[in-house]
């Protein structure tokens, strides 16, 4: 079911230039994005096994949505000099998703903001691995997970910094909230072989902020509403900064709908 509807072309060739694209059966498994091209890619409920190479100065913006169960994906992104890739990932169904990034050219930059919302007995596993193979690259991974019912969510991600990848700037954050009988496991990992780097990662699994809930109740919101509002806020900022602005509204709707069932 497609919620995000714009004019998109299905990728049919192995080399792609500026434009707004989506996947189809005809999409080859290895696709190159031309140097300097500005590409938007929308993947919604499509199984994806794709290796993308961004030539120098290419810009790729991806919105990846999974609202139907059993749609798995494995995306590889290889960035050349000064290439830039930004991804927003929204998951509200059972799935296994893997993203492997290789920053292979100086000045390349990668950002991923993801969120998974699970209820019932849904299970989802997310991997985001980032390799800094050369110096002067930047990566940001922010993944938020909310699991309720008896769902199970797992995040794992390795940030690898090669011996010569000096002046790497990397941040990885996994923040999670569990409710009811749900279970979350998070494994952020750092493997660092260069020393002039700025690398950090963090992971939290925690409940809602009591103080904030108190504050909202004092303003008249019921306990239910206060909790919901807080979770909304928690996941919203990932989608509010989605790289394809026109998608934001739909993404927010998808999240809100899912939140009702939590």
């Amino acid at each position: 079911m497609r919620r995000i509807s714009f004019d998109t072309q299905p990728i049919g060739a192995a080399v792609v230039g500026t434009g707004r694209w989506t996947l189809s059966e005809a999409t080859p498994s290895r696709v190159t994005i031309e140097a300097g091209a500005e590409v938007e890619l929308i993947i919604e409920n499509q199984p994806a096994k794709l290796q993308l190479t961004l030539e120098r100065d290419a810009r790729l913006r991806v919105v990846h949505v999974i609202t139907e169960a059993g749609v798995h994906s494995s995306l590889g992104v290889n960035l050349r000099e000064n290439a830039e890739c930004r991804v927003a990932q929204v998951i509200t169904a059972a799935t296994e998703s893997g993203v492997e990034v290789s920053l292979a050219g100086s000045g390349a930059s990668f950002e991923l903001g993801g969120v998974f919302l699970l209820s019932g007995d849904q299970r989802c596993g997310v991997r985001v691995d980032v390799r800094h193979d050369v110096s002067d690259c930047r990566s940001r991974t922010l993944y938020k997970g909310v699991a309720s019912g008896s769902a199970r969510g797992e995040f794992s991600g390795i940030v690898y910094v090669a011996p010569d990848a000096q002046r790497t700037d990397s941040e990885q954050l996994s923040r999670n909230i569990t409710m009811a009988d749900a279970h979350i496991a998070t494994r952020p990992q750092l493997e660092i072989y260069a020393d002039d780097v700025r690398c950090s990662h963090g992971a939290t699994v925690g409940q809602l902020d009591d103080q904030a809930v108190l504050y909202m109740r004092q303003r008249g919101l019921s306990l239910e509403m206060a909790k919901r509002l807080q979770i909304e806020g928690f996941v919203s900022d990932v989608v509010l900064h989605a790289p394809i602005a026109e998608c934001c509204e739909t993404l927010v709707e998808i999240l809100h709908e899912k939140l009702q069932s939590l």
């Binding site: 008249g220 509002l229 909304e232 928690f234």
Partner: peptide, 24 residues
């Protein structure tokens, strides 16, 4: 009365340390 019931009946507390609610 619960916290929100008191609020809806017109009781307002101006907090000493107003908390932040990111994303809202």
């Amino acid at each position: 009365l619960s916290i929100e019931e008191r609020s809806r009946k017109g009781l307002f507390l101006g907090f000493q340390y107003p908390v932040e609610i990111p994303g809202v």
